[in-house]
């Protein structure tokens, strides 16, 4: 139910936009649909709580979910919803915790996400060299503590949606999430300075999750200016943390010089390029998705929609997996005057 926002928000993405995405006229960048030729943002996507129902159709996660669901689900409407999620290529956005209102998709999904990130951290710790392992920022028990606090925050967010919760709860969550995000950021920076920059990725993901909760909490507490500020800061920090993750330097660092000047070196180069391209693309997608949330928050402000209204609409929508906020066409408005 989008209630009060029914005059600005659509429960479906217009067919012409879907067709435009398929044809390459538009691209989806995070939660934004943008014209490829003009750069104009034509609309903003918001995953709703209905997406968690779709996720539950498959234990393997969204990409697999979409395939499974199309096979097993008889309900045509659900099939259509899945098709939209697939065609907009935003399947991973909901589970990445990058989009606006990271908790809208539900605590269970976020908890799974946090568990996966923690597993990744656990996997890199034994492979760190002695110097990196000795960093204060990489003390295992401290990192585990931070992940516990992150899970607790997700639970608190769920509680804060309950009717008896007040703005105070949201503000407390925002502060805790801010502190936790700073902690993950510090760990990522220290580890990046002492070790292979790719090792920092799970800590950066943890930062993205914690800082996303901070943005959500500010929106839910009707502190929209603070939400915009937090979202901007989050996007810029993600860009900074990802700055050293560049394809060519990583590939060339992995190509042994003793083979240079031979076809073997070229083969290694091609293989490493293939291996690392997806990793770099994922980092960039995360950054652009975070930047997209800033755009959406500004668009909401321009349209006079509060962050709380936006979250409430997404939270209460149990049918369609996505809400769509079309951007007003400035040209058409000018022509009409």
């Amino acid at each position: 139910m989008i209630g009060a926002l029914s005059h600005v928000v659509l429960r479906e993405v217009p067919a012409e936009l879907l067709a435009g995405v398929s044809s390459g006229e538009y691209r989806v960048a995070g939660s934004i649909i943008q014209s490829v030729s003009s750069g104009r943002v034509v609309g903003h996507l918001q995953e709703t709580s209905a997406i968690s129902s779709l996720l539950n159709l498959s234990p393997l996660g969204l990409p697999q979910m979409a395939m499974d669901a199309v096979t097993v689900v008889q309900n045509e409407q659900i099939k259509a919803a899945i098709s939209v999620v697939q065609s907009l290529q935003i399947a991973n956005l909901a589970v990445s915790g990058i989009g606006i209102g990271v908790s809208v998709a539900g605590a269970a999904i976020l908890a799974k996400r946090i568990a996966r990130v923690e597993e990744k951290v656990d996997a890199i710790l034994p492979n760190l060299d002695a110097i990196a392992r000795g960093l204060e920022a990489m003390r295992v028990e401290r990192i585990a503590e931070d992940f516990t606090r992150l899970r607790t925050l997700v639970d608190q967010v769920e509680e804060a949606w309950l009717p008896s919760a007040s703005q105070r709860e949201w503000i407390a969550i925002a502060r805790d999430a801010h502190f936790l995000a700073d902690s993950f950021e510090r760990r990522a920076r220290e580890l990046g300075a002492a070790s292979n920059v790719l090792n920092t990725d799970p800590l950066v993901e943890a930062f993205a999750l914690a800082s996303g909760l901070r943005v959500t909490a500010r929106m839910a507490s009707s502190q929209d200016d603070m939400a915009r500020e937090a979202a901007s800061s989050r996007a810029l920090t993600l860009v900074q943390l990802g700055e050293a993750i560049q394809l060519a330097p990583l590939v060339l660092a992995h190509a042994p010089m003793e083979n240079a000047g031979t076809s073997t070196w070229l083969e290694v180069l091609e293989q490493k390029t293939g291996d690392l391209r997806a990793t770099v693309a994922r980092v960039r997608d995360r950054e652009i998705a975070a930047a997209g949330t800033v755009e959406t928050l500004h668009e909401l402000a321009r349209r006079g929609v509060s962050g709380r209204e936006w979250l409430d609409a997404a939270k209460s929508e149990g049918h369609n997996p996505l809400l769509f906020l079309p951007v007003r066409d400035v040209n058409l408005q000018q022509k009409a005057r």
């Binding site: 560049q246 394809l247 060519a248 330097p249 590939v251 060339l252 190509a255 240079a260 000047g261 031979t262 070196w265 070229l266 180069l269 390029t273 770099v280």
Partner: peptide
Amino acid sequence: ASEYSLVAARTLN
């Protein structure tokens, strides 16, 4: 920057 660095690497190799 990355693409042309890799183009240079492949070509010069």
